[in-house]
């Protein structure tokens, strides 16, 4: 824990030290940067970013932000939510530490996703102070996310590894297309949760790294050199990766919220109290339930 705090503090100090670095964008590098713009040697990154940002980004985000909730609304009204017995036995599945870390991550996401969308659709908000404030909140929330995503990655890592029955889960879409209450093949976490976990952690690390690059802008930690690109191209790679990942993470985040709040009635209580309904575990996490029975823990 001490080492972890030291790491976070060291990160802040190195952030402030980076400002003192010699310019890698506006100094001597300006000539090779001009010459490389729009050439195959730097993968045409400049014009590629201009094309993506000016033609596709807002459109793709608009589709994701409108279509994903629309699909779920349709699902809710046509198939409807899954309801499990809530006055039966409960199974303790999330420790206090896990719940606190998850709460931190939830706060971070509730700040990151809306502020990120505010930046992308900033022109409809008129820009200026409001959107700039959103950008600052986006940066601040990154710290909350970083603090929560590292322990989360470590304590759920093993349980999130894919298994063979996860393939089955994907083929029946987790059984969410039918109202039938039957046993779904899934461990403590189902394939959908696993996808979200890897997207959120590994994708999250990429988001944090690329976000820090863009925040610092002109720094020299040897990262660009190690990747064999110029500093400006590192920033271009960062913004493209950040925005493409952002679409996917936003869609998954909406899915996660829909599942916990609406699709399974009362499912959110397990991450608040730590207890999940036995009926729910038996049906939606049948493999895990069988393991509990076999080990005599249940």
């Amino acid at each position: 824990m001490k080492n972890f705090l030291f790491f976070i503090l060291a990160l802040f100090f190195s952030v402030s030290a980076a400002y003192a670095a010699d310019t890698r964008i506006w100094g001597e590098m300006i000539i090779p940067n001009i010459l490389a713009y729009g050439t195959a040697e730097n993968y045409n990154l400049g014009p590629l970013f201009v094309l993506l940002q000016s033609q596709y980004l807002r459109l793709v985000f608009a589709v994701a932000v409108i279509a994903v909730p629309a699909i779920f609304a349709t699902h809710y009204f046509i198939v409807g939510p899954k309801v499990f017995i809530h006055d039966g036995n409960k199974i303790y599945i999330f420790s206090v530490f896990q719940r606190i870390i998850h709460l931190l991550a939830a706060v971070a996401f509730l700040l990151l996703v809306p502020t990120g969308l505010m930046i992308i659709f900033g022109r409809y908000l008129g820009g200026g102070t409001l959107v700039e404030f959103a950008r600052h909140i986006h940066g601040f929330a990154t710290i909350v996310f970083l603090v929560s995503v590292i322990p989360m990655f470590l304590f759920w890592f093993v349980e999130m590894l894919p298994t063979t029955y996860d393939i089955k889960w994907v083929f029946i879409l987790g059984g969410y297309l039918s109202k039938q209450k039957k046993e779904i093949p899934a461990g403590k976490f189902n394939a959908g949760q696993k996808m979200w976990f890897w997207m959120c952690t590994l994708g999250g690390f990429v988001m944090i790294a690329t976000g820090i690059f863009m925040y610092l802008q002109d720094f020299d930690y040897g990262i660009a050199t190690a990747l064999g690109v110029s500093q400006i191209d590192l920033l271009r790679i960062s913004v493209i990766a950040h925005n493409i990942l952002a679409v996917m993470i936003t869609a998954f985040f909406f899915t996660h919220v829909y599942m916990s709040l609406f699709a399974i009635k009362g499912a959110i209580h397990s991450i608040i109290t730590g207890y999940k309904e036995e009926d729910e575990v038996k049906h939606l996490h049948s493999m895990y339930y069988k393991k509990l029975l076999a080990s005599g823990k249940k």
Binding site: F49, V50, Q217
Partner: peptide, 8 residues
Amino acid sequence: CLYACPFG
């Protein structure tokens, strides 16, 4: 704008 600009 910096990422898009050819001239820095």
